[in-house]
Simulated scan of single mutants.
Amino acid sequence: MENNLQNYIDVFCECFDVNKEEAKNLKYQDIDSWDSVGHMGLVAALEDMFHIEFEADDIIDLSSFAKGIEILEKYNIKMS
């Protein structure tokens, strides 16, 4: 079984060119690459990784690494 949490971390690392520890503490606009364009890239990468389509409210609410975990769990993506 694939590790969803590791996949989630990997998406953040790839999208924003950060390491694992940096990814876990990220919040929207903490770094230059997480701007509106970077945000949509992250959303697209997460949708591809987990085979889901976010609702508009969830795209807006995705404001941090931690919040993203909450949102994914809403879509029955277990983060363990």
Rank of each mutant, 00 (worst) to 15 (best):
M1T: 10
M1A: 11
E2A: 13
E2D: 12
N3F: 07
N3T: 05
N4Y: 07
L5S: 06
L5M: 14
L5F: 15
L5H: 13
Q6D: 14
N7C: 13
N7T: 14
Y8N: 06
Y8I: 07
D10G: 08
D10K: 14
D10I: 08
D10T: 14
V11W: 01
V11G: 02
V11S: 01
F12E: 00
C13T: 10
C13N: 10
C13W: 04
E14G: 09
E14F: 07
C15W: 09
C15V: 15
F16D: 01
F16H: 02
D17E: 13
D17P: 04
V18P: 00
V18Y: 00
V18S: 00
N19V: 07
N19F: 05
K20L: 08
K20W: 05
E21H: 12
E21Q: 15
E21I: 11
E22V: 10
E22G: 01
E22M: 10
A23G: 07
K24L: 12
K24R: 14
K24W: 06
K24F: 05
N25Q: 15
L26Y: 00
L26I: 01
L26Q: 00
Y28A: 11
Y28G: 06
Q29C: 13
Q29W: 09
Q29F: 13
Q29K: 15
D30H: 13
D30M: 14
D30Y: 09
I31M: 04
I31W: 02
I31S: 03
D32S: 11
S33E: 13
W34A: 00
W34F: 02
W34E: 00
S36Y: 00
S36L: 02
V37I: 15
V37A: 12
V37R: 09
G38E: 08
H39T: 06
H39M: 07
M40N: 08
M40W: 06
M40F: 13
G41A: 09
G41D: 11
L42Q: 03
L42E: 03
V43Q: 00
V43W: 02
A44M: 12
A44D: 10
A44K: 11
A44V: 12
A44T: 13
A45C: 05
A45I: 01
A45T: 04
D48Q: 11
M49S: 13
F50K: 06
F50G: 06
F50A: 07
F50D: 05
H51F: 10
H51I: 09
H51C: 12
I52G: 04
I52S: 02
E53K: 09
F54I: 03
E55Y: 08
A56V: 14
I59P: 02
D61A: 14
L62Y: 10
S63I: 14
S64N: 01
F65I: 03
K67P: 05
G68I: 02
I69W: 02
I69T: 04
I69L: 08
E70Q: 10
I71E: 02
I71T: 02
L72W: 04
L72A: 03
E73I: 05
E73K: 10
E73D: 06
K74R: 14
K74W: 07
K74T: 13
Y75R: 07
I77Y: 05
K78M: 11
M79A: 04
S80H: 13
